[in-house]
Simulated scan of single mutants.
Amino acid sequence: MLNIGDVFSNLVGLFLLIAVGYAAVKLQVLPVSSTKLLSNLLMQITLPATILVSLVRPYDAAFIRDGVLIAILGTVLYLLYGLLSLPACRLFHVGEGRRGAWIFSAMFSNNGFMGFPVALALFQEEGLALAVFLGIPFNLLAYTLGAKLMCMDHEAEDSSPPPSWRSILLTSVNGAILLGLVMYVAQIPIPDVLSTPLTHLSNITTPLSMLVIGMNLTEGRVGDLLRDRDVFSVSFLRLVFFPVLTWAILRLLPISNPLVVGVTLIIMAMPSPAISAILAESYHSDKEFASRSVFLSSLLCLISIPLISLLL
């Protein structure tokens, strides 16, 4: 069982970094437009380095078995969330033009920008290594099924086509996962000359991801957010209903490693993913709603995640 004090302390530390990113934009130290460059640095360089460092470890067949299990769990849970979000969308009377974005924001969690750093903070490198496996179903589903959901809101003639499988699979993050697994199975160590710079780059990932989230939050308007009931309903599903449902499902399964349960539950309790606003813009959905969902759920998870962790 996680210590609630440790969970809260780690989350407060991460959210102080978010506050730094928020203040940097508000005080005009950095322009909000720089989030694109910093996000690229994160996704193309530092996060792959973090993944590689976490996966290259002494061989343990149980780790591979747990990794495959957690990837299967992630796939099933994401699809289940999507199926349940369809009737919930009607139940909460979500308006046309944002239903796809609403379902996407409820269905997927922020596993990369926030989930990986939180998993590292709470479960150390072994927890992060397992959390990496949850990135596989996320990448495959968010950019295919997720793109289709966004297209529901506005089937315009100039809508961008769904991304190709090549663009989905050939990313730095997936490349680091594949390389790390190959090196793990073959027990190929990272050469000393590369180990130090990779470790330094890995250490940048957590503060950089939190700074980027804080910078993105500056685009939300509190007044508009408070008047948008759909943002509150999707945050309830994302932060409360689906994590509690996940906990109930995990309790029914004969999972021997408690770390698998802990990592799965915490990652699935993350707020709406930052990519939702980007996809909403690309496929002509409601970008403002998607941004508000990221904004509110990212703030409320400071309360929800410690409470969800009490279930472990």
Rank of each mutant, 00 (worst) to 15 (best):
Val132Ile: 15
Ala101Thr: 12
Val53Gln: 12
Tyr143Cys: 01
Gln28Asn: 13
Ala24Asp: 11
Ser202Pro: 13
Asn216Ile: 03
Leu41Met: 12
Thr205Asn: 09
Ala131Met: 05
Leu302Lys: 00
Met270Arg: 01
Ser304Thr: 15
Ile267Ser: 02
Met270Tyr: 03
Asp6Arg: 08
Val231Arg: 01
Thr205Ile: 11
Tyr78Thr: 11
Val20Leu: 13
Ser195Gly: 10
Leu226Arg: 12
Met210Thr: 09
Leu145Gln: 06
Ala129Cys: 11
Thr196Ile: 15
Ala156Asp: 11
Phe236Glu: 00
Phe15Ser: 00
Leu38Val: 09
Ser309Pro: 03
Ile275Trp: 02
Gly112Thr: 06
Pro137Asp: 05
Leu226Trp: 12
Val294Thr: 01
Tyr283Met: 04
Arg166Leu: 13
Val222Glu: 04
Val76Gly: 08
Ala106Tyr: 04
Val20Ile: 14
Ala106Ile: 05
Ser160Asn: 10
Thr205Ala: 13
Pro58Glu: 04
Leu27Tyr: 10
Ile103Val: 15
Gly135Cys: 00
Ala119Phe: 02
Val25Gly: 14
Phe108Gly: 07
Ser85Val: 06
Met183Lys: 07
Leu27Lys: 13
Leu14Phe: 07
Asp224Thr: 08
Ile45Gly: 02
Leu237Ile: 01
Leu211Thr: 09
Thr205Ser: 12
Ile136Asn: 00
Thr206Gln: 11
Ile103Gln: 05
Ala19Gln: 07
Leu239Gln: 03
Leu14Gln: 10
Ser209Thr: 10
Val32Cys: 10
Met270Gly: 06
Arg251Pro: 07
Met43Arg: 15
Leu170Val: 12
Asp153Thr: 02
Cys151Ser: 12
Trp165Leu: 14
Ile177Met: 13
Leu310Gln: 09
Glu157Pro: 03
Val182Ile: 15
Met43Glu: 11
Val260His: 02
Val231Phe: 04
Ser54Glu: 04
Pro162Glu: 08
Val260Glu: 06
Phe113Pro: 06
Ile4Ser: 15
